[in-house]
């Protein structure tokens, strides 16, 4: 990705626009809304992503600039990664102490399968649900599913729609719920800090922000844990999907659809394409047997 940096700095219109967004959003500042027992934190970065999407639809931004912005996300993200790192160094003893939790929480990323797959099946989704729920569907997972099923397969359509959903809504959604969950649930902010390593830089930033803002006295340790978790996920994430996430999703899909087919067969009618796909699958397995 660093390869496309050519001439990006020259696009002063884009940079001035982003600078303007930064100034406006920082001037608006941080606000919070109480929702029941928890707090939803509205941070400048949240306004920034929404304003960013909005200005794309004004004549101020061209499609080409929007493509350039992607590389700049990456460049700016490196500063955040460096910030993660320098917070982690002094926290080395805490990181070692919390090592087991940091490593094992990676397994928690599979929680997405356990929670989201049943929901998808309940809503009547078929094999798309495998692509959608085997992971949070970022670039490496898009590549994995494409490689295994092809992008035009139901699984491929599933991961693609999740990719689009996450791209547009991921940081906004996590930015809203992270502060709320950390204040409303009995779970410790440290645990949520470790959970921010979801496998996407901007989602990590969006979910970490409210934690740092809500617990300023723990900010250093929270950032260190978040940084370590992000680093771990960036290295292990794809392998966890290949060896655990995807096989587990397929297995659970089989178990859940078997039970469901007995109780609610009418849902089968929803998509004819998917049915033929399933029939093919079944006949294949029969031949093998």
């Amino acid at each position: 990705m660093e390869g496309n940096a050519a001439g990006l700095w020259k696009d002063w219109k884009l940079h001035v626009l982003v600078l303007a967004i930064v100034c406006v959003t920082e001037l608006i500042g941080q606000h919070s809304i109480s929702v029941g027992v928890g707090i939803i934190l509205l941070l400048p970065m949240l306004y920034a992503v929404i304003i960013g999407i909005a200005v794309y639809f004004t004549p101020l931004v061209t499609k080409k600039q929007s493509e350039k912005a992607e590389t700049l996300v990456y460049i700016t993200l490196t500063l955040l990664i460096a910030k993660f790192g320098v917070q982690a160094g002094p926290a080395l003893p805490q990181l070692i102490e919390a090592g087991p939790a940091l490593i094992l929480q990676e397994i928690g990323n599979l929680g997405t399968i356990l929670i989201a797959l049943p929901v998808a099946i309940l809503l009547g989704l078929k094999r798309e649900s495998i692509g959608m729920t085997h992971s949070i569907g970022r670039e490496p997972n898009l590549a994995l599913i494409t490689d295994k099923f092809g992008l035009s397969s139901p699984e491929g359509r599933g991961v693609m729609s999740m990719y689009i959903f996450g791209t547009v809504f991921g940081s906004i959604f996590l930015g809203l719920i992270s502060g709320f969950l950390a204040t409303a649930t009995p779970l410790h902010p440290y645990s949520f800090a470790m959970a921010t390593g979801v496998g996407s830089g901007s989602m990590a930033a969006a979910s970490l922000g409210p934690l740092v803002a809500a617990f300023p006295d723990m900010a250093d340790t929270i950032t260190a844990f978040s940084g370590a978790s992000n680093l771990l996920t960036s290295v292990t994430g794809l392998y966890a999907s290949i060896f655990i996430g995807l096989p587990l999703t397929e297995k659970l899909y089989k178990v859940l659809t078997k039970r469901k087919n007995y109780s609610e067969p009418e849902i089968e009618m929803e998509s004819t394409i998917v049915i033929t796909e399933e029939v093919k699958e079944e006949s294949k397995t029969k031949v093998v047997k």
């Binding site: 928690g108 990323n109 959608m132 729609s161 999740m162 959970a195 978790s229």
Partner: peptide, 28 residues
Amino acid sequence: KTVIVGMFVLLGTFLGSAIVAEIILRMQ
């Protein structure tokens, strides 16, 4: 449907990791 499933996907990975981390941190 995608939007609903998508929210559960994000919630699942975030909450899943937090719960595992919480358990280990408490045990320690």
